[in-house]
Simulated assay, not measured.
Amino acid sequence: MNISIISFTTKGAKLSKILFNRLDNYEVKCFSKKKAYEGIYYVGDSLTEWVRKEFKKHHAIIFIGACGIAVRVIAPSLKNKLVDSAVINIDENGEFVIPLLSGHYGGANELAVFIAAKIRAIPVITTATDVSDKFAIDIFAKKNNLFIGNKYGIAQVSAKVLDGQPITMSIEKGHSFFIDEHEISIKNTIIQLKKFPPTETVDVIIADSRNPFLLNNQINASLYLYPKKYVIGIGCKKGKKAHEIEQHIIKVLEQEKIDIEDCIAITSVDIKKDEEGIIEFSEKYNIPFKTYDVETLRKQKGDFEESEFVKETIGVGNVCETSALAYVNSEFFGEKNNSEIICHKVANNGVTVAIIQRDWRINIDD
């Protein structure tokens, strides 16, 4: 997660530097509306315009100051809870850490609790399922790398949870440890697992968006969750622009009839970790960008189309396929891996793309 911290006073700037040093597991940048602070970026734009740019990059934002400032300047950038950036407010004394936006799916609640522990502050969490210690379906979806097909369904499921009612869930066969119908309790919430496909309307369906029962409208549910099961491997010449990379990736996805919302990661070799075009594409679509060293790529097994030039330059002849495989293989620890390359290397104008369909499994017991 990339975090941008904005402060407005000397006291706030000092706190932002403390956070910078203590959030060492994140990519953090500190900003201010004043020019006098060393190591802190000056914001020359209006705050509203600065927020718009940060939202476009899907960066989490921490405001140090009054909540009112944050509320006013983020308002024009708001779209919906599934795409809005996580926003947190901290008072200048560092006593309270308040997640204002995207508490669950954007991760603001979890980040607020983490920050509070780092600076010995009090996290102020107001999300209904959290304060009631109930199961939150959007957190469950995020942890399981699921794309939410209909965001209005979250409210319907959460309403039942908050009323103390059980919720019903059906998971596509082969992707859960539960085979038969089963009932479990998570965070004071009863979840009744139903066979797939369900013969009745259920609260939650988890299935591949291409599942024939879904395509034929044979399943009724309040909320549809789809696995993000595709990994996009990328190789490119240095300095390729984001629009060139995007154009090629989108074309390949369209040819394979894959929605970009179903993609879980973008991968490449580690010498591309600072490639601005890939980073910009990753931020635009809010898909994590992962890189791997050459030795890891060499260990991947498969029949790859290699480039002698690339091999001589960096030490491995195929980046897009091997990096995507590296991502998939890192997820499995002794389990059977049914993932496969569904689109081998496709090159165009200095950009290579490959797509791997990863096996997916739902963890429902935590």
Rank of each mutant, 00 (worst) to 15 (best):
I3E: 12
I3C: 13
S4K: 10
I5A: 11
A13H: 01
L15P: 07
K17F: 14
L19E: 04
F20H: 13
E27D: 14
V28C: 05
K29D: 05
S32A: 15
G39Q: 01
G39I: 08
Y41F: 15
Y42P: 04
G44H: 12
E49I: 05
W50C: 02
W50K: 14
K53W: 05
F55H: 08
K56C: 06
K57F: 08
K57R: 07
H59R: 10
C67A: 11
A70M: 11
V71C: 08
S77N: 11
N80S: 12
L82D: 09
S85V: 00
A86C: 12
V87N: 00
V87R: 01
N89F: 11
F96C: 07
E110Y: 03
I115G: 03
A117P: 00
K118D: 04
I122T: 11
P123D: 07
V124D: 01
I125S: 01
I125F: 02
T127R: 02
T129R: 01
F135G: 04
F135M: 09
I137S: 00
D138T: 10
K142A: 06
K142C: 04
L146H: 09
I148F: 13
I148G: 04
I148E: 12
N150P: 06
G153M: 12
G153P: 10
A155G: 11
A155N: 11
V157E: 09
A159C: 15
G164P: 12
I171M: 07
H175W: 00
I179C: 05
D180V: 05
D180R: 10
E181G: 10
E181Q: 13
T189A: 04
I190E: 14
L193W: 02
L193V: 13
K194Q: 03
K194I: 11
T201W: 00
T201V: 15
V202K: 10
I205W: 07
A207K: 04
L215Q: 15
N217V: 03
Q218Y: 07
Y224D: 12
L225I: 12
V231F: 01
G235S: 11
C236H: 02
K238Q: 15
K240F: 09
E244G: 01
V252L: 13
Q255P: 00
I258A: 06
I258S: 12
D259Q: 13
D262R: 07
A265H: 02
I266N: 03
I266P: 14
V269F: 07
D270H: 06
D270F: 01
D274H: 07
E276C: 01
G277Q: 04
I279C: 00
S282D: 04
E283K: 03
Y285Q: 09
I287C: 06
I287W: 08
I287Y: 03
P288N: 04
K290R: 03
Y292E: 02
D293C: 12
V294F: 06
L297R: 02
Q300G: 02
F304P: 03
E305C: 03
S307M: 08
S307V: 04
V316K: 06
A324K: 06
L325F: 09
F332Y: 14
E335W: 00
E335Q: 09
N337C: 14
N338S: 06
N338F: 03
H344R: 11
V346R: 13
A347C: 13
G350W: 10
V351I: 05
V353F: 00
A354P: 11
R358M: 13
R358V: 01
R361S: 09
